[in-house]
Amino acid sequence: MTGPFDFALALGDDALVAAQRLGEWTSRGPEMEEDVALANIALDQLGAARLLLTYAGELEGAGRDEDALAYLRGDREFRNCLLVELPNGDFAVTMAKLLLLSAYQLPLYAALAGCADERLAAIGAKARKESAYHRDHAALWVRRLGDGTAESHRRMQAAVDQVWPYAHELFAPWPGAPVDPATLRGDFDAYVGPVLAEATLTRPADGWAPAGGRDGLHTEHLSYLLAEMQVLHRAHPGAKW
């Protein structure tokens, strides 16, 4: 992993796969308002993905646009973190995933907004505002569910326990990247810790730390997600949509 191409690709893939998962909630939310909110967040992630993948394609200089990168790569060529490709689970799992993702994306985009690469800086400046909302939204639900009923508390704790190990990969050192994610772990912990405490949830112990997404080694889930996402595009080679 070197250079801004890999970096833009990794961030773009995070956002794209997150959008794909969030889109699965459409018409399935626990409340109509939540359908609207989840679609909103999916649209934000998709918007960031399009900017990042378009830029990655330009940096690569091989003529690949956002759609070529999204639809014509296999799972071994995707560089997203494992967290985003995990299935949605119940609403608690989705909110736990969103909390971790947004608590990572917000400081990442904020730091990117000040980086030397003008295009990445512009994307970061736009996306950080959206991430701030995603993080608020996720934190609100984690508190509600953690400190709601006994049932919701049980589900929320189980969800946090399930996804917590996948946070580790987000902050793996990436020397030479426009922003080294390892520098963001402090921001993440400073935000997530108090949210879990307010939600009366226990912060899981660190231990098992699955990784590999940035090198194209994914969970079994990603291949299915891509098969569905790419099926129509690949069935009509060269077609315009």
């Binding site: 959008a19 649209l43 998709l46 399009r50 569905e228 996402m229 129509l232 949509w241």
Partner: peptide, 15 residues
């Protein structure tokens, strides 16, 4: 939504 054939179409359909 999950199978929209381009990212632009996916965004329009989601919206």
């Amino acid at each position: 939504i999950s199978r929209a054939p381009s990212l632009k179409r996916k965004a329009i359909l989601l919206a």
